[in-house]
Simulated scan of single mutants.
Amino acid sequence: MTSKELKLRKRQDYGYILEYRTRWSDNDMYDHMNNSIYNFLYDSVVNTYLIEKCGLHPPTSAQYGLVVHSHNDYFGSIAFPAVAELALRVNKLGKSSVTYEVALFEKGVEEVKSVGELVHVFVDRDSGRPATAGMNQDLRAGLQSLQVTQSKL
């Protein structure tokens, strides 16, 4: 997917949206949200979805996701006191891995501010190794409900 194509993303391209009220401390010396906060927010929307919709309980679940890859394309800035809308979808679902796409919008603004990708590999808690039998059924079912078809990538 090219940056030009990602820049055309709309909220309706995503199956789950989470609001985040920016904080004063999210801004950097250039008076916009620091790049590291985007990664924090991407991780937060993914884990919120896993907890709410996939039955994940991070401290005790038999499996958990490890981030093995992430990147981000920036198209515009956002700053305190704006409200961010984090939009989530699944672009690829493997046996024990999932590729998420996360877009950040500013509430009330149509254009996407950034689009990122995050890849989780689900591992067994006991071994810390990729889940040999694949991710559990609840995780898979919840993630499948966010999965887009190849034509919508």
Results as ranks from 00 to 15, higher is better:
N27S: 10
T2Q: 11
V109R: 12
S97W: 01
H57E: 11
T99A: 14
L139C: 13
V45S: 12
H71Y: 12
V45I: 15
N27R: 07
F80A: 08
R23D: 08
A131T: 13
Y49L: 09
N91T: 14
H71K: 06
V109N: 10
M135E: 00
E106H: 14
K113L: 07
V119R: 02
Y20I: 03
Y74C: 04
R23H: 12
P59W: 15
S127W: 11
K53V: 05
L143F: 13
V98R: 00
K95I: 13
T2I: 06
H32E: 11
D28S: 13
K95S: 15
H32F: 08
L8E: 12
G108N: 11
V83T: 14
G76N: 09
P58M: 05
D126V: 15
G76H: 08
K95P: 07
R11G: 09
C54Q: 07
A103S: 13
H120G: 10
A79T: 09
F80E: 09
M1W: 15
V45P: 09
L66F: 15
K107P: 00
E117L: 09
V119K: 03
P59R: 15
D43M: 00
K92E: 14
D13V: 11
A133D: 13
M29L: 14
E19N: 14
A133P: 03
Y100E: 05
G134Y: 06
S61T: 13
Y100K: 03
Y49P: 01
S127T: 15
P59T: 12
Y30E: 07
M135I: 06
L6K: 03
Y30V: 01
Y42K: 01
M33R: 00
Y14V: 05
A79Q: 03
A82W: 03
P58G: 02
C54P: 00
L41E: 03
E106P: 06
S25I: 08
S61C: 10
H120N: 10
I17N: 01
F105W: 02
L6V: 04
T48I: 13
H32R: 07
N27L: 07
R129W: 14
T22W: 00
V112F: 01
